[in-house]
Design a binder for these strands. Structure first.
Lengths: 221, 221
DNA sequence: ATCGTAATTTAGTCGCACCTAAAAATAATA
DNA sequence: TATTATTTTTAGGTGCGACTAAATTACGAT
């Protein structure tokens, strides 16, 4: 079935909000997401319901049916593959990619997607550390958390940043932190939120709370 | 000014048809191009006229104004850059690229275009041998003609193919012909349209009329 | 359990990009 | 030149995806 860009965006948003809240998605939540009016959302979700992409009951919110879920996963796959491409091949920084990837994800061409995947060497995660669904929509989940939440003694691997201002990225490169870097949390100071870490079993560095909350990591084991 | 994909497509088509015919473009010609009705075209060219992208007079056809021409050239630039990308990096063959490039050319991101250009090493021509406009829309013209039209004694450089069936591409690679190959026309047989060429100052090969008309070349000097 | 507020839907409108049918202008031909 | 044929435009209509205003439903507090 051929979907419009708008329809695709609704489906992706429903997926995203469901993932976050676990609940059926309200018209208001979608209206909020797109900065449009709830009445417009009602229109659209009714149409998506007729196409059997979502389950919709008046006043009770909307959830994805299987067909819709598969559409959402393909979109996320394309979005994240393009993000990898933009960062690795075209010198985009982590926070410049989103807007362009929003456009690129709607390009229709199975060959384009699979060849891009191969060209990028079948990446498993995007530059923000989020997993890239495979052709069948399967997602390699891993727990993604803030460095500021990691307990003393644990070893964490850097998988992304929250916001990537130039200045912050320069700071990271100066202390030798990049994607894949292992950080052992040696100590945490609750009173100012700072953390002492050992970078790649070598240097010891103290990171401010701001830095720590900007770093996405995953735990070893 | 933000243009819709449709508006962009009209502008590109007007540019293309003007280039081919040299005349003002008729509503019918555009209707033909998009397989839609002339009445719909009238609607659109009126809107484009109000936006000062085209010059339009009732019953007299339409032509691009400067603003429109610049839009057209940027679209052609993006289209051809993407074609190079698809062929060189993603293993698309020369005749698979058009449809996807039609979609990709509408992506809005100046950074994407300029970085892609750099990533591809500032190509001057696309896989069909057509020139890629630079950032300012300037086009490096070169005369593109069929190998079947080249006079005896002249040296021609292969710059593209018309249709690229797998079988034809395999044949080319077998006789050592690829983009950039120099062909000296040793002889031409008018009665069956075949041509005898010397490939890269080495092998001598006879090409059928069908092969010769499928090869786009440019002349030395 | 009821009442008031917040959330949601319905009804009607608008621009875009197409359509059909009919009218008008232009071009071709006798 | 007059008539016919073709091209183009106008007028009015449709679905999409947004809107506003008004009606309806659901929910939280008393």
């Amino acid at each position: 079935m051929e979907l419009s860009t708008s329809e695709e965006n609704y489906i992706k948003a429903i997926f995203k909000i469901t993932e976050r809240t676990g609940e059926k998605v309200s018209t208001n939540a979608l209206a909020e997401e797109f900065s449009i009016k709830a009445a417009s959302v009602t229109d659209m979700v009714q149409r998506l319901g007729e196409k059997s992409l979502v389950h919709y009951e008046k006043y009770k919110g909307v959830s994805l049916l299987e067909a819709g879920e598969s559409v959402a996963k393909q979109l996320i796959r394309k979005h994240r593959l393009w993000e990898v491409f933009l960062v690795e091949k075209l010198n985009f920084s982590w926070d410049e990619v989103h807007e362009v990837a929003e456009q690129l994800e709607h390009i229709r061409s199975p060959k384009l997607t699979s060849e891009l995947d191969a060209f990028l060497n079948y990446p498993k995660y995007d530059p923000h550390g989020d997993p890239i669904p495979d052709k069948e929509g399967r997602i390699q989940a891993r727990i993604k958390l803030n460095l500021s939440k990691v307990q003393k003694g644990r070893i964490a691997e850097v998988i992304g940043v929250e916001e990537s201002e130039d200045d912050f990225l320069r700071f990271l490169s100066r202390i030798g932190v990049q994607l894949g870097t292992k950080l052992e949390v040696l100590d945490r100071f609750e009173y100012d939120g700072s953390v002492v870490v050992q970078v790649d079993d070598e240097r010891e560095v103290t990171l401010s709370e701001k830095v720590a909350t900007n770093l996405w990591v995953t735990l070893e084991q």
